[in-house]
Design a binder for these strands. Structure first.
Length: 334
DNA sequence: TTGTGTTTTATTGCCTCC
DNA sequence: GGAGGCAATAAAACACAA
C-alpha cells in the first residue's frame, strides 16, 4: 500500500527538476542573499552525449525521482553534503552507470538550503495542505511525497521535543511541591516538639500544685503530714484530689485534653521519659465513668481549643516517592 | 579505520475522515 | 474506498571517540 502511494506521488511530482531549481534558487537568494548560479540547461548539455533512449528512460526518471537540482550539485556550500552523491560517483563510466541503475534506491539527504526552506515553511504552518505541498515540492525540486514525509517526520520530532519540555515543566513543578512538602513536614515536627515541651511543663506545674494543696489540707486536718500522704497515696486519694484540682482549673483542663488526645500515644523520647519518671500520668486521668467512648471522643473534639489537634500518626502521611520519575510512574500506575 | 551512537529519510500498517 | 495522519520501525547517512 505504501508503495502504491509512493508511486502515485512519484508520478505527481515527476519531471519538474529544471524549472523548480530556478524557483528554489530565487527563493533562497532572496532569503539569504546568496548568489547561486541557476543553470538548468546544463543538465541537457551534460546529457547530450548519451543515447536518447537512455536519457528518457533511465536518466530523467532518476532525476525526477530524486528531484535533485543540478544547482544543488554545483553549489559551493561548504557544509553541504552531496545530495546526489551516487550520481556523481557514476560519472566514471558505463559499468558504474549500469551498476548504479541496478542498485536499490539509496537514501539521499536534503540539502541545507532545502531543509532551511522547509523549516521556515514548517514554522508558518506545521500542517501541509495539498496545494502547499505541491508548491513546496516545486520550489524545492522535490517530490510532493518527500515534502509530505519531511513534514510528517518534522511533526514527530516536534512532538517529542514538546513532550520533553512538558516533562521538564512537570519535573520542576514536582520538585518545588516536594520542597514545600518537606518544609511543612519539618514545621509540623517542630510544632509537635513544642507542644510536647509545653505539655510536660504543665504536667510538672500541676504535680507541684497538687502536692502543695495536699500539704495545706494535711495541715488543716492536723494529721501528721508524712503519714497522711503516704496513706493517701497508698489508697489512691492523691489521684482523686488531683483530679478535682484539675477539674477546677480551666487551663489545666484544656491542657489535660491535650494530654488525653495526644500523650497516651506519644512515643517521643522526651515526653514519655518525663511521664514515666514522675509516674504522674494517673494524676490527670479524668473521671469519665458516665461517658461512653464515643461521647468522650465527640466531647473531646468539640471542646478542644483550636490549637489542639487530633493526634496524627506518622502513618497518616504517606511519603511521596523519592524521585519525580518514581512519582510519575506511581501516578501513571494508578 | 572502525565501532558505535545519533539523526534523517523512508516504509509499513493501522486509523480516521470525507 | 481513497487520502492523509500517525506510531513504529528500518536503514542510510553522519558524527565522533578510540
Amino acid at each position: 500500500m505504501g508503495q502504491e502511494k509512493f508511486y502515485k506521488s512519484m508520478a505527481g511530482g515527476a519531471c519538474g527538476a529544471g524549472g523548480s531549481n530556478s524557483n528554489l534558487s530565487v527563493l533562497l537568494q532572496s532569503q539569504r542573499g546568496l548568489s547561486t548560479a541557476s543553470q538548468p540547461l546544463e543538465a541537457f548539455f551534460f546529457l547530450a552525449p548519451l543515447p536518447l533512449f537512455l536519457v528518457f528512460f533511465l536518466i530523467l526518471p532518476i532525476c525526477s525521482r530524486s528531484m535533485m537540482s543540478f544547482e544543488d550539485v554545483h553549489q559551493a556550500n561548504g557544509s553541504s553534503r552531496p545530495f546526489f552523491r551516487s550520481f556523481d560517483h557514476e560519472d566514471n563510466g558505463d559499468d558504474d552507470l549500469d551498476e548504479y541503475f541496478h542498485q536499490p534506491e539509496k537514501k539521499r539527504r536534503l540539502t541545507v538550503d532545502q531543509v532551511q526552506f522547509l523549516e521556515k515553511s514548517f514554522e508558518v504552518e506545521n500542517k501541509l495542505e495539498p496545494e502547499r505541498k505541491i508548491q513546496l515540492a516545486k520550489d524545492l525540486g522535490l517530490q510532493p511525497r518527500q515534502v509530505a514525509i519531511w513534514f510528517q517526520n518534522r511533526r514527530a520530532r516536534w512532538k517529542t521535543k514538546q513532550l520533553e519540555k512538558d516533562y521538564d515543566v512537570l519535573q520542576s513543578s514536582y520538585n518545588s511541591l516536594k520542597a514545600d512538602y518537606d518544609k511543612v513536614l519539618k514545621e509540623k515536627e517542630k510544632l509537635k516538639a513544642e507542644v510536647n515541651l509545653l505539655t510536660d511543663k504543665l504536667l510538672l506545674q500541676e504535680t507541684e500544685k497538687g502536692s502543695s494543696e495536699l500539704s495545706d489540707k494535711d495541715a488543716l486536718s492536723q494529721e501528721p503530714p508524712k503519714k497522711a500522704v503516704a496513706d493517701s497515696a497508698s489508697d489512691g486519694e492523691v489521684s482523686k484530689i488531683s483530679t478535682v484540682a484539675c477539674k477546677q482549673d480551666d487551663i489545666s483542663s484544656a491542657k489535660s485534653d491535650i494530654f488525653d488526645s495526644d500523650s497516651p500515644h506519644y512515643a517521643d523520647g522526651v515526653h514519655s521519659s518525663l511521664l514515666e519518671a514522675g509516674d504522674s500520668s494517673y494524676v490527670f486521668e479524668p473521671d469519665q465513668s458516665d461517658l461512653s467512648q464515643d461521647e468522650e471522643d465527640n466531647l473531646g473534639k468539640s471542646l478542644l481549643p483550636p490549637y489542639v489537634f487530633p493526634k496524627l500518626e506518622d502513618d497518616d502521611y504517606s511519603d511521596p516517592p523519592a524521585s519525580f520519575e518514581d512519582h510519575a510512574f506511581w501516578c501513571w500506575s494508578y
